[in-house]
Amino acid sequence: MYHKTTSYRVFNVFNTVFLLVLGLICVLPLVHVLAVSFSAKSAADANLVNLWPVEFTTVAYEKTINNPVFLSSVWVAVKRTLIGTVLTLVLACLAAYPMSKESSTFKARNIYAWVFVFTMIFQGGLVPFYVVIQNLNLINNFWVLVLPGAVNVWLTILLLNFFRGVPKELEEAALIDGAGHFRTLISIYLPVSLPALATLGLFSMVFHWNSWFDGLLYLQNKSDYPLATFLQTVIVQRDMSSMTFNPKEMELLSQKTVNAAQIFLGALPVLVVYPFLQKFFVKGLVLGSVKE
């Protein structure tokens, strides 16, 4: 038994330590940012903070959540995430159901499938896309964050593959009872697909919450930005114009601690759903990508 040999035991100890260190490296940068966000200006600016706050304070968070531009960007992000996810899921369910049929029952299926898949392998590119958005009068319009990405082909394919696993007998029984296809989809397919829909919904939510480029490209007013775009301008472009500091605050706050607080608040919703996501995504990923 190899488990009992000394060399394997030595290996096992080193291996466990090595992998745990790798795991920690994946989260320590986030812990560091969290520590900076709760530290005092003097400690943060003097680079004294490592993984634990120095002179604990919450002023950076107070300043952030009292910034009206920050608050409005959170609201835009919440709106786009909810509306976008619901729209994507509804469209995906509707399209995945007929495309999950064999081409013997639904001849046009293969044509539709190629029309969908082709959009994944070829895109018009940034400039033509911008011109289309402009001609649709979607510039500076909230719906530019939701409509262009409403059909998620990858998600539709995952759902299509899942629908194929639904026992045919269930569907046949419903059709014999006189139910149409809409009824069959709603009362047979959707209830048995709830775990899959939950997975795809969470993925779509994280995707929407993290999207920043569309906001930067198509929206000009800071007050219309979703949170991810707002963070991009503040953290990466270092645009602090939305915040004014009075002299008293200048003593307590530094750009470093405020930025750290904003980074952490931006990541927080993803961290909150992460445990649920992890429970589902292994299944979801395997469902779509690994097949015999």
Binding site: A95, P98, M99, F122, G124, P128, V132, G149, A150, T156
Partner: peptide
């Protein structure tokens, strides 16, 4: 026979035409 199937795909198809195939024409 399959009008329901076509109807189900139609919304997604319209979105793809506007936001994927129209930009392709823009090349």
């Amino acid at each position: 026979r399959n009008w329901q199937f076509h109807l189900m795909i139609l919304p997604s198809l319209l979105f793809l035409i506007v936001f994927a195939y129209l930009p392709m024409a823009g090349i």
